[in-house]
Design a protein around this nucleic acid. Structure first.
Lengths: 189, 189
DNA sequence: AGGCTTACCTAGAGGTCCTAGGCAAATTAT
DNA sequence: ATAATTTGCCTAGGACCTCTAGGTAAGCCT
């Protein structure tokens, strides 16, 4: 019998495509095995278990997002950088809903440290160099930005904004305007 | 054999407690049946299927949150109302992580319309009466506030803020300060 | 008391997760 | 080139979850 030539990397990549097609919660070991025309048990030579597969997927998604944001950010500063970051983040979530959902997994501290999660925080911090913010305000602002981006995208995907006719795109643009003006006039403690 | 006296309501209530104990993703029909000392199949007289159970749980959580926020909001306005809303929202999420996760489910439009989801939007809008905001800025601000609250709480629970020594509580307080000042000086389009 | 509704049961099919143990293909050593 | 080793994929099977069909008996209504 010819071998399928599986590796953890190929499995993770296929899982990412599967996630975008059928949703992160439907990424199962069985579905992945079916995709490769192989028995379930065969995958366990490459991944420890189903959770391990999902963690690998999360790590992949975090890295992809970081790359995309990093590219978008190159050569920009101030509001330009803010908008570029936000668009890159949001467009990734729209194009890759399954991967984005994976990226929201709660990772154990060790895995999180090895992942691109820290790069995200670092890049968000880089945006703030265009504004006049210093510690601890900078960290507070990083957290606020990250929260707003993530919150907006996940509520949008959950359909929370469909009940009102106001365009989701227009609100997003105005939210970025608002955040920019907030960063420029960050209140004192 | 004595009957357990199950109803959809008792099942949903028990599922809520179970969710807070073991996590929303571990709320299964089997686990719930075990809790009542009853066979799995018995639950299907009260709920349609596992998804139906989770939706009921989501609706319960949305209603509970709306009640709590509504109480917190009574008699307050301006920043007072903003802070009260935010604290009520966040404390609910902390005290009831499983229920909060349930409340993030994507509901089909009909269910969403019947749920307390619209009350949430309405209450957020009520906060803005203390600020000088009119349509469409009001809707944009509602979406921004909702996104930030939800984003902050879910990133916090995911451990995204643990990598930095700055206190999560302090950042939260400052985020509310920032949002208040943003609403008072909402930028023109 | 008799009849009706329904809460809960047993039985069982089908799916996912995962382990143990085996064989054969690919790789490395001789 | 053949032998030895590694390892990719297999079968078999157990544990758990979901859900359906059909049955029995408990509790409610006259």
């Amino acid at each position: 019998m010819a071998r399928a030539g599986l590796t953890a990397e190929r499995l993770t990549q296929a899982a990412a495509e599967l996630a975008d097609e059928v949703g992160f919660e439907n990424v199962t070991v069985s579905a992945l095995a079916r995709h490769f025309g192989v028995k379930d048990a065969s995958l366990y030579s490459h991944i420890r278990n189903a959770h391990d597969l999902r963690v690998r997927l999360a790590v992949l998604a975090l890295a992809e997002m970081a790359d995309r944001v990093s590219d978008a950010l190159a050569g920009r500063s101030g509001k330009d950088a803010l908008v570029a970051f936000a668009q890159a983040y949001r467009s990734y979530a729209h194009e890759h809903p399954g991967r984005y959902a994976a990226a929201q997994m709660v990772l154990d501290p060790d895995t999180a440290a090895l992942s691109a999660a820290s790069k995200h925080a670092e890049m968000t911090r880089a945006i703030l160099r265009g504004y006049d913010l210093w510690e601890p305000d900078q960290t507070d602002a990083v957290r606020l930005l990250h929260s707003t981006f993530h919150g907006y995208v996940s509520l949008e995907r959950a359909g929370a904004f469909h009940s009102h006719p106001r365009g989701v795109e227009a609100s997003w643009t105005r939210a970025l305007d608002a955040l920019d003006s907030l960063l420029r006039a960050w209140p004192n403690a």
